[in-house]
Computed example of a mutant assay.
Amino acid sequence: MDVPTKINTWQMVEPGKLEKTTIDVPELKPGEALVKIAGCGVCHTDVGYFYDGVPTVTKPPLTLGHEIAGTVVAGEASLIGKEVIVPAVMPCENCAICAAGHGNRCLKQAMPGNSLGIYGGFSDYIPVPAGDLCVVEDKKDFSLETLSVVADAITSPYQAAMKAGVKEGDVAIVIGGTGGIGVYMTQIVAALGAKEVIVIARNKEKLERALSFGATYTISTLDKDAKAISGDFRAYSKEKKLPNWGLKIFECTGTKAGQEIALGLLTFLSKLMIVGFGMVKTEYMLSRLMAFEADIMGTWGCLPQYYKPVLNMVLEGKIQVKPFVDIRPMSTILKAYEEAHSGKLVQRIVLTPDF
């Protein structure tokens, strides 16, 4: 298998500015692998880094992109020739946080497009730690680039569901359940047995689609404030005789409006998971948490050991991916950023190298 000496890449040289360039393939250390990239998804986090100047661990110039699938071409001998998904966050496995079972939030973690040196997924090759690569033994009728979204858009919601303890019979609410992560959050809680999955979002057409992908009921936020949306949910709960406690709420938008809706729905013994990233500040009376004995929790990335079961859920059809993916050449990266930044995308863009 040919091993390149150069990596073609689209670097962010400063926030808002991209440059196509080449960088050297580094000398691989023991336990590392060089992956030929099949595709890399455009995540909301990438867009935030690019336009809003959200600080990455590695400062520009660096290559963004952390939703990666590809083929190992060098490094760890047992993996050469294997098709793999690269976890969005790869823990060090050698610290107290990892030992405590929270490797997804390891402070020494390697994240492409953030803390893996200058290397990211909007390239044709990437050097990565080999230990946590998720091998795709049989991708069935999926293209490898389609499966790149498993690296974050699907596994991160799964981590949130695990942390929330979603179980058979739960009532789950997904705010932003029609977005890039929300469509998978909706499907995951449904697949895990939630008896009611209420999706709250703006676009009525996308909400109608959500009913075919795990949602049992939808509420449009169009021309409504958080209080009105809460009223709609209470009316539905009363009609369906749902409990007013123990809700599992997933805020996937990262917006002030989404967070305010989520906080307005929080009630007794409920859990609110903050899944969507944003830079907004939202006020809340913390004493309500005491009165409700409720939890608000953040969730970051996904433990590498969850990747295989999530991949199996995709391959078995429990989580639908193809309707939500739009594969494009990597040379269209700037347009992809612009469209993702507009917030109007129906599908998640996956870029394939065409240098």
Rank of each mutant, 00 (worst) to 15 (best):
G182T: 10
S342P: 02
M313K: 06
V275I: 14
G264M: 11
A340Q: 14
E67D: 12
R288I: 05
G75M: 07
K238F: 08
C302Y: 10
S342F: 08
T71P: 03
I327V: 15
L269W: 03
E205D: 15
I319F: 11
I327A: 05
M290Y: 14
G117K: 01
P329H: 04
S78C: 00
V199E: 03
L62W: 05
T216N: 04
L263I: 13
I349H: 00
K108L: 09
C134V: 07
G231K: 13
V166G: 01
L147S: 07
F292T: 11
L34P: 04
I198Y: 03
G169S: 06
V72H: 07
F277D: 00
V199S: 02
V128W: 08
V280M: 08
P61S: 02
L242D: 05
Q347V: 00
E145A: 15
D124R: 04
I7W: 12
D132W: 14
L289T: 08
R348S: 02
Y184L: 10
P55C: 08
R209S: 12
V314G: 00
G81E: 10
K139G: 04
I80M: 06
E27P: 00
L303F: 01
G214I: 12
Y119W: 14
R202V: 00
A228H: 10
P309I: 09
S220K: 08
C252K: 02
P329I: 09
Y337A: 03
K271C: 07
Y158V: 09
Q11M: 15
V73A: 04
D225T: 07
M12V: 14
W300K: 12
E251N: 05
E339I: 11
S148F: 13
Y337K: 00
G39A: 12
T216Y: 12
F213S: 02
P30F: 07
D46V: 13
S143R: 15
P61N: 02
V310L: 05
N8Q: 13
V42Y: 10
P15C: 10
T255Y: 10
A201D: 15
S331H: 06
S331Q: 07
